[in-house]
Structure formats: structure tokens, C-alpha cells
Design a protein around this nucleic acid. Sequence first.
DNA 1: ATGAAAGCGCTAACAT
DNA 2: ATGTTAGCGCTTTCAT
Lengths: 331, 331
Amino acid sequence: MVSIKDIAKQAGMSPATVSRVINGKNNVNPDKRDQILKIIEETGYVPNKAARSMVLQRSFTVGIIINDTFNMFQRQLFSVIERRLGFFGYHTLFFFVQFDGASEEACLVRLKSEALDGIIMIHEMKDPRFYAYALEMRIPLVASTFSTQGVLSIHVNEEQAAFDAVSHLISLGHRKICMISGGGFSFGRQRAEGFFQAHEAAGLERNENRLIQVPYYTIEFGMYGMREFLLRDRDFSALFAATDELAIGALRVLRDEGLRVPEDISVVGFDDIEIADYLIPRLTTIRQPLDEIGEQTALTLHKLINGYRGTGMDMILPYKLIIRESTARKI
Amino acid sequence: MVSIKDIAKQAGMSPATVSRVINGKNNVNPDKRDQILKIIEETGYVPNKAARSMVLQRSFTVGIIINDTFNMFQRQLFSVIERRLGFFGYHTLFFFVQFDGASEEACLVRLKSEALDGIIMIHEMKDPRFYAYALEMRIPLVASTFSTQGVLSIHVNEEQAAFDAVSHLISLGHRKICMISGGGFSFGRQRAEGFFQAHEAAGLERNENRLIQVPYYTIEFGMYGMREFLLRDRDFSALFAATDELAIGALRVLRDEGLRVPEDISVVGFDDIEIADYLIPRLTTIRQPLDEIGEQTALTLHKLINGYRGTGMDMILPYKLIIRESTARKI
DNA sequence: ATGAAAGCGCTAACAT
DNA sequence: ATGTTAGCGCTTTCAT
């Protein structure tokens, strides 16, 4: 393997000079610089990351902590983030975590071995040792698409967005609205909260029976939730699903049961994942500004890594209600 | 940061002994071993990966090269692979590549800086320098879901699978069948080849006009392809889409045009991505054994890294035609 | 069984 | 402007 010494030897200079050239220091003779650059080019030399990493005490890589069962929105999100991060010159290491303590602990062990420059959480960590470690090692943290105490968070106003989604249904004349939400992530609670608040604002009674909580935000659990509601009674005309995937499951069950969307039941999702606009029927949903969230997440972390201390405030990005075919005026 | 020296100091022993304990060498006094283990436990010490990496000349990380525009199947696949790889103790670094040379070159530079233990390609690299580098550095390569000369490849028999998919349509009485396929990946050609072979085997004429090639395997291009066919003439009763995403786009356009699936037009996809079973109508498709491909990819690379020299043969995994609601007998 | 010492490839502080 | 040197944290001879 070709190392900095080889380049130095070939150029008849010292490794230090080569290092200066590589790192763009300006105190080096232009002629020599060109000569070195030429040799680097010819040999295809690329500095060894582990070695740089060790001496500089940083790894040029950012960790992304994400849940094992990431949904399509999260999937799209981390893809956007990783692209932006690459743009800033970082490598990205993914840490897939489950909801149990053992999994978080394993993640922490791996984290520690990496000397990460920064960490992005798409999944909320519970273990205080994680936060203690980040603090001790001064590793910047950014929470993306959720908010957590003491961590710079980038997200939409979940409650308000859910409020708008449900208000849309109410404005369409719906009075009996169900919701499927889930556990695990804080947005599940927040979206449910917005659901109830919209009822309250419209003078409708708060009915806890109209909310079903499922363990995961998957299509399967969307089906499960919808079947449950159908089993209890068919006395509702609209559904608000806490994620688009839940909505897709609901759509499937409604179809199987011979109920038409939106003629019989209106459905609203949340996230606006890629496929939402191609479903039959096209799904009315809340659009999270995926690209902007990804961009701001990467940018904020980058700034944090480079000494920016932050405002201490969360960054709240605008969402948008996208009205498509799955909602209609109640007949 | 706590280092091996700190542990050694606390234990009153040398770093060498601690290193032996960490690496499970057996020539160390059991009492001292326990004592060291205890201290490691207490301090939460985890060896620095960059340092190990440098002295061992390996990084314990595997690179996954994947296309920028990865489709849902590839997305699911890399998630499976990364999980299996983690199981074997590897970290995973993703390298997103586009179809142009500049992008491949940038990828190669990043690759070189990493001292990767192995590389998995989900995206086919063209640049011979990439293969030369892997060969020179003795970095094991595995190709997943496609086949390429001189690289151990794990995939299904694409041609045969496409043949079966189209034969299914023919057996249903369809005689005028269209196909949307794409460029970029070798499977696009192979699936198109199977499409024509099925025609031939059934004594149907080969009609190149029945094949549309689109640049990317996206929903949008599925819509584009379908619209094209509809514009030319409506004289066909079935469509074979080279990927499920292409099929989703086609489904959407057919619906918009008031054509019913499967009553008017039968549609077959390829991949069996997660959502295929929940679409309206549920999509008939070819199931690639996602989990097994992921598992075998990770396992094969792991074996290669540990000295296994391979049989020189590709690993061909079984696919399965999954018949759902989007295909029916021609009326 | 254990420790001392060298060295992996690089950068930075210190000389010159 | 350039070279010399030390050292990042670890593993692995080589002694003992």
C-alpha cells in the first residue's frame, strides 16, 4: 500500500511537506507542491483514514442512529441526510437500534469504538449513559424529526400538523373520526394529542375509544388497527393514521371490506412518503419537508462540529397538508 | 478518553496483557484476566477502532456500493445485508454511486482511504481501476442481485424468472403483452431477454415495439412507459414491468385512464417489494428471496474475508412467481 | 505468563 | 519553507 512516506521518498522530500500539501497548508513552495500533487495523482495515493483519525482524534464520520423497524419516511430521510453529510465530507455509519435496553447498550459500545465526529438521532435513545458519553466526549448531537430535552432538534410541529389534518376532516363534515397511532416514538403521542385538540377546538367530544395504539408504524399494524375499528362498530366516517404506512394498511382493509375511500370513509395519513401520491386512491396526508429536514440536520451537525454552539432552540420546519383523493365531504 | 494504558495502569499490569485479555488470548493468568475484565467493565472502556485498524491493517468494516437511485427492493436488501453483517461483527459503510465515471472515481477515492475488509456491490462498477484496486489490495468482492465477470455473484436467474412471469401471462390467454424495462443495471437486459424468450417458446412473434426502455426504475418512469404504450395504441392486454416500482406507476396510469386491472389489463411486476401485497390491486410479481440473498451475501463475504477462496461459481437462489390480484385470464 | 519496545500512517510542534 | 521528532492507541514480536 502506498503511504505518505512513499510519496515523500519519490518526491525527495519529507513526509511533513507532503502532509502540508495534502492538507492545503499554504506554507509550501508552489513548485514542490505541484510536484507532490503530480506524484499523488500518478500513484493514486489516498491518505489512510485510520491514521489521520488517530492523530487528529476524530474520525470524519458521523453516526446515524435509527430504529431497526424504520418506516419508509425514515428510510427516505436517512438517505437524504447521508447525501448531505457526504457533501460536507463526512462518512456515515448507521447504528440500527431496537427499543430495548440491551440493544441501546450494544449501540453505545459500537459508538464508543468509533470516535465519531457527531451523531444524528432519528431514533430516540433512552439510556442516560448515551447522553453522558456524548457530553463527556463533546460529541455533538442532533435529533431529527423528533424533539428531546437538551438536544438540538429539527422537526415539524407534530401536534399542530395533526391538528390541521384532523381539522381538515372536520371541515369536510366528518364528526366521527378514528385514529391509529403507535408507541415507541414521541411523535405518536404528539400526533394523537393534535387529534384530540382538533376535536376540542371544534366543540366535539373527546372519545378515547376513537384512538387505537399499535406497537409499530407498519402496514400490517395499519390493517390491524382498521380491522379493530370495524369490529367495534362501523359508526365512523373518517380515519386519521399517524403515518402513511398505517394509512396504507387501513386503505387495504377498507377495500377488502367493500368500503370505498373516500365515498364511505375518508383517510388522512402523515409524512407524505414517496408512494403516497401514487396510491389508489392518492393519499391525503401531511407533508414533512423531507429534503429540508435532511439538509438542516446535516448542516446543523456540521456547524456544531465546527464549534457552533447553537441557539439552544429547536428548529421547527413547516409542514403542509396535501389534499389528494382519499378525503371527501361527508355525505 | 479511557485507553488501554489507563486500564493497564489501574490493573497494575502492562498494556500488552490487557491487549491479550481483550483479544481472548489464552496465555494469561485467569486471576489477572478477571481483574482486568472487571476494570474494563467498570470504566466502560472500548478499544479504539482506528488504532486497532491501523496496526492490524484492516478496518472491520465492509463497504456496500449502491446506486444513488436505489429502488425499494435494493433499499430493503441493503438493510438486510447490513443487519447480517453486523451479526458477523462488521461495521458497514455505504458508498452511493451514480452511473457516471466521475462518481465512480470519487467512490474509489473514498474506498481507498478506508482499508475495507470487503466490499459488496449492489451497484455494478464499470471502472477497471476499481477491480484492479480490489485485486491488488486483496479486498474480497461480492456482487449481490447481479452477476459480473470474475466476481462471486449472488442472484436469481433473472432471465428464467422473467420467462416465468411472462409465461404466466401467456398461459392466462394473453397474446399481446407489453414490457417496461430499464437501463443501467444488467438485470434490465436479462429480464427483457426472458420476456422475448417466453414469446418465442409460446410461438408468439418477437415484437420490439412491445418493449419500452426507461432510464430509471422509478414509479414516475413506470407512468411514463405506460402512457407511451397507451398513446401508441391500446391493442394489448397485459404488461410485464421489470420492477415493482415500474408496475406501481403503470397501475396508477391505467387507473387514471379508466382501465381496470386485471379485468382490462393484467400486470406483473418483479421483486416483490414489501408494499406489493398491499397495493390495490395486490400485485402479481416475481419474489426475489430478499432475506436469503442478504444472508448469503453477508455470509459469503465473511467467508471470503476469512480465507475462503470460493468455488468460482455464482450462487443462484430460487425465485418464485407470486400470483395475486393484478393478473387474470384474458376475456 | 508477562513486560518492554517497535511500529502501523499520519500530523503538529518544534527546530532550523 | 522544510525537516526532525514525538506521539495518537493499539498489537505483536522479542526478551525474560
